[in-house]
Design a binder for these strands. Structure first.
Length: 483
RNA sequence: GGCUCCAUGGUCAAGAGGUUAAGACAUCGCCCUUUCACGGCGGUAACCCGGGUUCAAUUCCCGGUGGAGUCACCA
């Protein structure tokens, strides 16, 4: 059996779309599951869209998602180069295109933009706007003459006008398309570069790719690739077309959603492992129904034959939940590394930021959730005394005022503002007075935080605020309640 | 519009020719608790429609409907 080889073949045009991430991940999982090779190939045949730094984004993203590859531009293997613009220089695409011309499977086309646009405009409703094979009828001499005259040309695939083309996909089964629906697509552009459609087939073959994993949006152009393989007499790889990832409106996930790329998600405070985990489960699920899965577990369990056919909505809500799970299970130092900077965005005063951060570890889903949760540390909000009243705690303005008044001298008297110190002081008070915990703890927490709900309780908050600020806030509380 | 694909709760997603049709997120309620969160328990909620095949179809087939993708010298 031949070794499984899959590839991720992005074009350097910007951030990594989550659909691409999922495709890359599935390709990776297929090959790692089978002990095969994962190859990175850069498809930069469109010089217009290329920009400086785009390739670095690809490297960085693959690194942080943990998709390590065996061969790539920065990891030479036997079938390089791994960047298409470099492959162009070796002349392979032109060579293979000419081979097809020889075989009558492709032809030179000298039509200019105007004529093509006209063709488009002429296409009636219900008719596919496709090339009319105008240049196919050119004689060999005419072609030679045009070439000699330096006329710009492209090379087009010659697809029969009749019949059908069938290919097999592992997930969707046999798919058949009528040939007259297939356009004579451009193989070599007038700038001498191959199109994606052509380069892809050539490179997958030359690089020994056994499983082509790609998005479902390529399903309709797949028959053209099949014809290319047939024209060359090459064996086709195993096709794995992944179902689409859509937005809440069930449309292909686009930039408009605000979270269409991996980088968007990281910026929004998601953890890379959670994103990978979540994306893996869009369109596939393991037999044991496990949801939280490490990369290793995914590799072990992944079976591409069980990928779903139908499109999946990218439910950011569920990602948030999953991210929260990852945060809860995160080692403390790793958590603090990401959480403390968020704390510092909201709190400029000299409080123990690590302590504040730890209050939130089990309470947040994404890191930016921290900011609105801890604003009260920075500044006591101007709250309504209504919030002292809580039915279940049996508190109201009157008994809250009483509790705070009685407690104030005790808080003034002590210097032990440790968690344990405050706890002891308060529990002693509660025991002595013979009231329910909540009747004392609720008003104190309200006074020191000014908020109805806070991360942590009275002990934690007072420990962080310290004596001076705690006293100040309790006095404000008394003042407000006394009015 | 042509072509192609898809169709189980709001979302993800198991499932099987005969099941009380899993589980997760979300949602609702209860418990725990000094609030919130965490955690625990429980509830609401689904097989698109019509034919056929069959003793039996949500499951297989056909048609419809609905949704999506695609129709570039972009990938």
């Amino acid at each position: 059996m031949t070794k499984v080889r899959t590839r991720y073949a992005p074009s350097p045009t910007g951030r990594m779309h989550v659909g691409n991430l999922r495709t890359a991940l599935y390709a990776y999982l297929i090959t790692r599951h089978a002990g095969g090779d994962f190859i990175l190939r850069i498809e930069d045949t469109d010089q217009e869209r290329y920009f400086e730094g785009a390739v670095d984004i690809i490297y960085r993203t693959l690194q942080s998602t943990g998709l390590d590859y065996d061969e790539g531009p920065d990891k030479e293997g036997a079938v390089g180069p791994y960047v298409q613009s470099e492959r162009v220089k070796t002349g392979i695409y032109m060579k293979y295109a000419k081979e097809l011309v020889e075989k009558g499977e492709a032809y030179y086309c000298f039509c200019d933009k105007e004529r093509l646009e006209q063709l488009h405009a002429q296409a009636k409703d219900g008719e596919v706007a496709k090339y009319d094979k105008h240049c196919l009828s050119l004689s060999k001499e005419e072609v030679e003459a045009n070439l000699a005259a330096g006329k710009p040309f492209v090379i087009r695939q010659n697809i029969p006008a009749t019949g059908t083309t069938t290919f097999h996909d592992e997930i969707y089964g046999d798919i058949t398309a009528p040939n007259d629906e297939l356009d004579d697509m451009v193989l070599i552009k007038s700038d001498g570069y191959p199109t994606y459609n052509f380069a892809n087939v050539i490179d997958d073959h030359l690089m020994g790719i056994t499983h082509v994993v790609r998005g479902n949006e390529y399903l309709s152009s797949a028959p053209k690739y099949t014809r290319l393989y047939a024209a060359f007499g090459w064996d086709e790889p195993v096709y794995v077309h992944c179902p689409l990832i859509t937005d809440e409106e069930h449309k292909k996930l686009s930039k408009r959603s605000g979270h269409s790329s991996y980088e968007d998600l990281i910026e929004q405070g998601f953890v890379n492992e959670a994103v990978v985990n979540f994306v893996a489960l869009l369109g596939w699920s393991p037999e044991n129904n496990q949801e939280i899965m490490s990369k290793e577990e995914l590799i072990k369990a992944f079976d591409y034959r069980k990928i779903n056919k139908s499109p999946a909505v990218f439910d950011i809500q569920k990602l948030r939940w999953m991210n929260g799970e990852y945060i809860k299970n995160m080692p403390e130092d790793e958590y603090l590394q990401r959480a403390v900077p968020e704390v510092k965005k909201a709190v400029s005063k000299d409080y123990d930021c690590e302590k504040i951060a730890m209050l939130l570890k089990s309470r947040i889903e994404v890191f930016p959730d921290i900011i609105p949760a801890i604003d009260f540390f920075e500044e006591l909000p101007d709250y309504d005394i209504e919030i002292y009243t809580h039915k279940k705690m049996k508190t109201n303005s009157e008994n809250s005022l009483e509790v705070l008044r009685e407690l104030l001298p005790e808080f003034e008297a002590t210097d032990d503002y440790s968690f344990e110190g405050i706890q002891k002081l308060l529990t002693d008070y509660i025991a002595k007075k013979g009231i329910k915990n909540g009747q004392a703890l609720w008003p104190v927490r309200i006074a020191v935080s000014g908020k109805q709900s806070t991360p942590g309780g009275a002990y934690e908050i007072m420990e962080i605020l310290g004596k001076e600020e705690s006293l100040r806030r309790i006095r404000i509380g008394i003042e407000k309640l006394a009015k």
